[in-house]
Design a protein around this nucleic acid. Sequence first.
DNA 1: AGGGCACCTCGGGCGC
DNA 2: TGCGCCCGAGGTGCCC
Length: 242
Amino acid sequence: MQGVFSKMPELPEVETVRRTLSRLVHGKTVASVDVRLARIVRRPAEPEAFARALEGLTIQSVGRRGKYLLFEFGELTLVSHLRMEGRYGLYAAGDALEPHTHVVFRFDDGTELRYRDVRQFGTMDIYRADELAEAPPLAALGPEPLDPAFTPQAFRKILAGRSGKIKPLLLGQECVAGLGNIYVDEALFRARIHPERAADSLTRRELARLHEAIVATLAEAGGAGGSSIQSYVKGEGGAGGF
DNA sequence: AGGGCACCTCGGGCGC
DNA sequence: TGCGCCCGAGGTGCCC
């Protein structure tokens, strides 16, 4: 088995998963899909329809938006969220099925991409590529924190007039995409801002500090391969930094 | 808008 | 020491 998972995936960990997946499944053509736990699949909600939609299609690329993985099949995109414990691995067709394997993508070359998720929180949605930007999970996402468009000015504008506490707002994905509990705590600590401060009570100086802390925290974690990445290649484990 | 809870399973910790 | 129960882990989505 070759694969990659992270204990609590936030943006840097999902990006590492994306990169690994891209290497493992790029150009592979889906022969069939086995949805073993219907709950994971949300759109189409019928496992049969979900499976049929992908059969015969080839993975052009693997992208990411916030914490969502995007398997790009040309006209269709599979949007996958790992939530807390979702993980992917590439297997040979004959490999024993590991516990908590909920979705199996069988390729025409005899390999299989398997999705495992102990807590069954992960989700998969298929959208037409041309409706992806307006799709419910992605449409409401804030800017990518490592994108040049995420400037202190943009950050300030997004938070303007928000009376809620800063930590829940940052966890909400609508102000900035990809942050989870660990990196929000880290960024707030670095910026020396209390998590329960009302967003609209933050000074310009504090907002600039917070913006800088978010970017620095994610950039450093990204360089190290995420805070808690473990990768497995042919059964041999290796730690991924931190 | 924003707070709160449900979703789900496992494992750690604690009490008896 | 051993067993069993309870709760926390944490991102989203829905309800109020």
